[in-house]
Design a protein around this nucleic acid. Structure first.
Lengths: 338, 338
DNA sequence: TTGAAAGCGCTACCAC
DNA sequence: GTGGTAGCGCTTTCAA
């Protein structure tokens, strides 16, 4: 049986109030009693119930994290970063894979609310912003991570997707490519849209264009869809010499398509990914990609939601924190041979 | 402000007991009152507090999952499987990355206990079995997944690691390899030990031996350590023609080492991984590996811990469920050329 | 059918 | 310093 605060009090011959005091290290107790109580707690293997404490208004020390899919390497990394920082502050993490379905987002949101989590970090897209209404009105802190919600005034921690797209474009342009294509995620994924916007504008600035038929969207099966779409692109009479993929999974698909079609990477085709997941390090050739500072993002998101702005304790936290992406040049990009 | 059961009761002009009844769909209430109460709940956006309900002896509908590292693709997949099955039964999942450190295991275990989770699924190794004592004595259901604890009478769901090792050995032997080496995980990882045992015995049955200097253990940096160890192996005057790696990450390291040394895979070196994570599909050449049925494992572990043996409701659940591994032949293994 | 009331384990306030 | 006690939100008898 689990020991309760009453068991400890009785065994130590004191009141539960006294026990509560030593649990929370507050109030005044004689050293003697404190020692006695501590000893009894030890002996009984007593662990205060977070549930009961939470009911009296204290926190649950639990955070919720919504991601599209925890088995997606990028989000697994985000989750790890969030978990670590949460743990650092004494919080644990409830994981919720939404598969990008609003219906699941809604379910999880009310579930987390019912469980009285102290905050919810959202790293998944939400189509219908109204879904957030219920939890906002219950004043549960919410922070977005790796995904921005257009027009919403939510705290957000993202990488500069637009700039990431620009980095990719500049890199490819610098290598002499002029026939550029893009493998996008599902059209509703905002980060993907931004990356493409940055890419497209940079390409335009170079006096080139990115025709619509050179931009392919994917569904849920990232690798497979990426492969299929890349395959299509590479079969055009005038095929692209470089493909910018909105994430590493899509890039893997592109690499597979190229390999299957006997198109050599990077001499005949350059491929750039996004996210710099572990996958980028294991492909051969190793994938050139745009890195997101996942660890930093996790830290910031957690600190923000817990209102632990270590830095300037008085300044109101920024509503939008945009981190710089970084181009990681590996082996899938090269100057165009002719 | 969050609405409570009192708010609903007052607003509907009934007692909280009545509200409680409609929440739980129990007891007898007139259709009229039920409708009225439901309406008020709706209007107030009322969501019963799981915390408060849990305090009265009901469940928390939360499960804990311990894994070495959620950012490791294999465990991310296990987590997804567990999450899905838990969700299926109405439970949410708290993730705990232990980094294989007993100290963290201990911390997380008491934390989960304090949060009154309804069960803990452990997918990480534990050196000191005594760590489980506290939670076992508090009678919190515990189930092991993907990892077995030697000599412990805990419900366990694992793949047949020994058989997995045999599969790998038979495959390699069948291809004509005689100079076999192994890339192991940390010596304390039991699943790794079993895989090697199966591998070694099968090799022995073929009249060959697996010298100790052909078996290398790794630390925490799987890919890096795998690369370093493989590099060493491949530099021996008499180098192995095939390497069995205890997981895909190590195999990636081996692939990188081979590539760096200009040793062609699979014509000069065959590599077999373990786990069949997404990584195995993205390497080039694609990795031959031993698959674990992660989805099924997640289902079983959750059903076991929740005691929902759909099958035979009366039979006591098996203490040890061993699932069959499967050899997935891709492109990193080939017959030995000479 | 319905509601009053006794907890569940803990915190916090208030008297002593 | 110390302990009594009123809740926190909900479930569950037990009378009415």
């Amino acid at each position: 049986m689990k020991a309760t605060i009453y068991d400890v009090a009785r065994e130590a011959g004191v009141s539960i109030a006294a026990v509560s005091q030593v649990i929370n290290g507050k109030g005044k107790i004689s050293e003697e009693r404190r020692a006695k109580i501590t000893e009894v707690m030890e002996k009984l293997g007593y662990r205060p119930s977070v549930i009961a404490a939470a009911l009296t208004g204290k926190k649950t020390y639990t955070l919720g994290l919504l991601v599209p899919d925890i088995s997606n390497p990028f989000f697994a990394e985000i989750a790890r970063a969030v978990e670590d920082r949460g743990d650092h502050h004494g919080y644990s993490l409830v994981i919720c894979s939404t598969d990008n379905q609003d219906e699941r987002v809604e379910r999880y949101l009310t579930l987390l609310q019912q469980k009285s989590v102290d905050g919810i970090i959202i790293g998944t897209g939400i189509e219908d912003i109204k879904l957030l209404e219920p939890i906002r009105s219950k004043s549960i802190p919410v922070t977005m991570i790796a995904r921005a919600l257009p027009g919403e005034s939510l705290q957000t921690v993202v990488v500069d997707d637009y700039e990431g797209g620009r980095l990719a474009a500049r890199h490819l342009l610098g290598l002499g490519h002029t026939a550029l294509a893009v493998l996008a995620e599902h059209p509703k994924v905002t980060s993907s849209q931004e990356r493409i916007r940055g890419f497209r504008e940079t390409v335009a600035e170079a006096g080139l264009s990115l025709p619509d038929y050179f931009v392919k969207s994917s569904g849920r099966e990232l690798v497979k869809d990426g492969k299929r779409n890349a395959s299509e692109l590479l079969r055009y009479a005038e095929r692209p010499t470089a493909i910018f993929c909105c994430n590493d999974l899509l890039a893997i698909g592109a690499l597979q398509a190229a390999s299957e079609l006997g198109i050599h990477v990077p001499s005949e085709l350059s491929v750039v990914g996004f996210d710099n997941t572990i996958l980028a390090q294991v492909t051969v050739p190793a994938l050139t990609t745009i890195a997101q500072p996942t660890e930093r993002m996790g830290e910031l998101a957690v600190d923000l939601i817990l209102q632990k702005n270590a830095g300037q304790p008085d300044e109101p936290p920024p509503l939008r924190t945009v981190l710089a992406p970084e181009l990681i040049v590996r082996q899938t990009t090269a100057a165009l041979l002719r």
